[in-house]
């Protein structure tokens, strides 16, 4: 069953046509990746889906409901949470307070303590630094915090925009392991990556975005074996 359906999405920045009529879907339980070069329109796609950037036209359906015109701050209540590009954690707040902000949309906070515990178990570094101001964390720790913060809202669909950006190879592997693990726990994942090799390896399906258009789609395996993807995104 399709959890997220995007139909004929178009997004403009002034006269620039950033996204030109794209359609794709994410089924329940899947990891789906959008790969594409810098400037292809991945972030624009992700942010317009949740209403952070206005859509020119098109339709977004989440769990059967049309959410095209729902304002951004209501999206998370529906079960769709995004870890934005560049992490965008709240630098002036502590690690603990950032996680609380992640739980902002939760209706009752009965499970707050155990939710925090779960996050601290998954990311022990965050537990060690829970009272530290988030702006002083390293890049890897900030990415862990951004993911932990998103998980506090119990998303059914987790959207991650370039979670491996700027991280050391060791941390990149760790991030992909965590994404796989989150998915195993029952959360559907929509991933955006420039790191095509690693992301295709964990993806059920993927789409290739070029200049605001989807030019190729298939299973993770099909795409990593495709001539075009190998040439353009996997360095041969």
């Amino acid at each position: 069953m399709a959890m997220l359906e995007v139909h004929d999405l178009e997004v403009n920045y002034g006269v620039i046509r950033a996204i030109k009529n794209i359609s794709f879907e994410v089924n329940e339980g899947e990891i789906v990746t959008l790969i594409g070069a810098n400037g292809a329109g991945k972030t624009t796609t992700m942010q317009s889906i949740v209403g952070l950037i206005p859509k020119k036209s098109g339709k977004v359906i989440f769990q059967g409901n049309d959410i095209t015109k729902i304002p951004c701050h209501k999206i998370v209540h529906l079960g769709m949470t995004q870890v934005p590009e560049g992490r965008r954690i709240f630098q002036e707040l502590t690690v603990y307070e950032n996680l609380l902000m992640g739980a902002y949309s939760n209706k009752d906070n009965a499970s707050l303590k155990s939710d925090l515990q779960t996050i601290y178990e998954r990311f022990p570094r965050l537990a060690e630094r829970k009272n530290q101001v988030a702006g002083t964390l390293s890049g890897g720790e900030q990415q862990m915090l951004a993911m932990g913060r998103a998980l506090m809202s119990h998303p059914k669909l987790l959207m991650l925009d370039e979670p491996s950006m700027g991280l050391s190879p060791l941390l990149v592997d760790q991030v992909f392991e965590i994404i796989k693990d989150i998915n195993k726990g029952g959360t559907t994942v929509l991933l955006v990556e420039q790191n095509a090799g690693k992301s295709l390896a964990i993806s059920d399906r993927a789409y290739v975005l070029e200049n605001g258009k989807i030019v190729l789609s298939g299973t993770g395996k099909e795409l990593s074996e495709s001539e075009m993807v190998r040439k353009a995104y996997l360095g041969g």
């Binding site: 942010q47 949740v50 952070l52 304002p71 951004c72 701050h73 209501k74 999206i75 998370v76 209540h77 949470t81 995004q82 934005p84 965008r88 954690i89 709240f90 902000m101 992640g102 902002y104 949309s105 913060r149 809202s153």
Partner: peptide
């Protein structure tokens, strides 16, 4: 923007 993503109006 990040605040909106948390569900803050």
């Amino acid at each position: 923007g990040a605040a909106q993503l948390m569900g803050i109006n």
